[in-house]
C-alpha cells in the first residue's frame, strides 16, 4: 500500500513539473515556423492537397521510411519470437452465422474501402497507414469468423519484402534522376500531373509510395495477427 502512495506522490510532482513547463507553451498560439513554409509551398512543390500527407511522404519522407522499417522489424520480430516448428490454429468455436455470412459479404467492401483510403491519400485525410490497417482488419475479420482460415506465409512475406524493396527503389530512382535520395522525380523533373491538382493522378510519387506502404502495412499487420493467433502444437519446440 505504501508503494502506491509513494507512486502517486512521485507522479504528482513530475506532473506538476511538466505542467509548469507546458504553461510556457500556450495552447492554440500560432508558433509555426517551418510549418508555415510547408503550408505555403505544398501545392507547387509536391502537388498534394493534403499537407500532412505531403509532409509525411515528401518533405519528411525519411521519417516514413524509418517508420515502415519499424513496422517491418515488429512483424519480423514477432515472427522470429513466435516461430515454432509445427503450429496450427486452435480456435475451437466457429464464428456465429451472423459473423460468417457477414464476413463473406463485407470482406470485399472492407478491402475496397482500405484500398480507397491509401489511393486517395494525397487528397483526403488518411493514407498508407490507415489503409493498410483497414486491410489488416479485413483479414482479422476472416480469422475471427473461420477457425480454419490461415494466411499463406509463402505469399505474404515476399509481398511484404517486395513492397519494401519497391519503396527503397523509388527512393533510389529519385537519387539516380534527381540527385537526392527520395527525390520526387515524377513531380519535380517529369512534371506529370501538374495541371490536375486535386484529382486522382496528381501529387508526384505520393500515390505510388502510399500504395506500397498500404500493401506493406496490410501484410505486416496480418502477419503479426497470424503469428499471434496460432499456437504451437504440443510437439512444437
Amino acid at each position: 500500500m505504501v508503494k502506491r502512495i509513494f507512486a502517486i506522490v512521485f507522479i504528482l510532482i513530475i506532473g506538476f513539473w511538466m505542467a509548469k513547463a507546458l504553461d510556457q507553451v500556450p495552447f492554440g498560439q500560432d508558433r509555426m515556423l517551418v510549418g508555415k513554409y510547408y503550408l505555403e509551398h505544398v501545392k507547387e512543390e509536391t502537388g498534394a492537397v493534403n499537407a500532412v500527407t505531403a509532409v509525411v511522404v515528401n518533405y519528411r519522407g525519411f521519417d516514413t521510411l524509418g517508420e515502415v522499417t519499424v513496422l517491418f522489424i515488429a512483424s519480423t520480430g514477432v515472427a522470429a519470437l513466435l516461430w515454432r516448428k509445427k503450429r496450427k490454429r486452435t480456435a475451437k468455436t466457429e464464428g456465429s452465422v451472423v459473423l460468417t455470412t457477414g464476413a463473406r459479404l463485407l470482406l470485399p467492401f472492407i478491402m475496397l474501402f482500405g484500398v480507397y483510403i491509401f489511393i486517395h491519400g494525397h487528397l483526403t485525410p488518411g493514407g498508407g497507414f490507415p489503409g493498410g490497417a483497414t486491410i489488416a482488419t479485413a483479414f482479422l475479420f476472416l480469422y475471427l469468423a473461420f477457425t480454419v482460415y490461415e494466411v499463406d506465409h509463402k505469399i505474404f512475406e515476399p509481398l511484404e519484402g517486395l513492397a519494401g524493396v519497391g519503396y527503397v527503389t523509388v527512393g533510389l530512382i529519385g537519387l539516380a534522376i534527381g540527385g537526392y535520395f527520395l527525390f520526387d522525380w515524377i513531380w519535380q523533373t517529369w512534371g506529370i500531373g501538374k495541371e490536375n491538382i486535386g484529382r486522382l493522378l496528381s501529387a508526384g510519387f505520393i500515390p505510388i509510395i502510399y500504395t506500397l506502404i498500404g500493401i506493406k502495412v496490410g501484410t505486416e499487420l496480418t502477419g503479426i495477427v497470424d503469428n499471434m493467433i496460432k499456437e504451437p502444437e504440443e510437439g512444437g519446440q
Binding site: G35, L39, A51, V52, V55, V56, D63
Partner: peptide
C-alpha cells in the same frame, strides 16, 4: 501539419 506527421 508537422506534429500530425510526427504523430502518424
Amino acid at each position: 501539419p508537422i506534429p500530425q506527421a510526427l504523430v502518424l
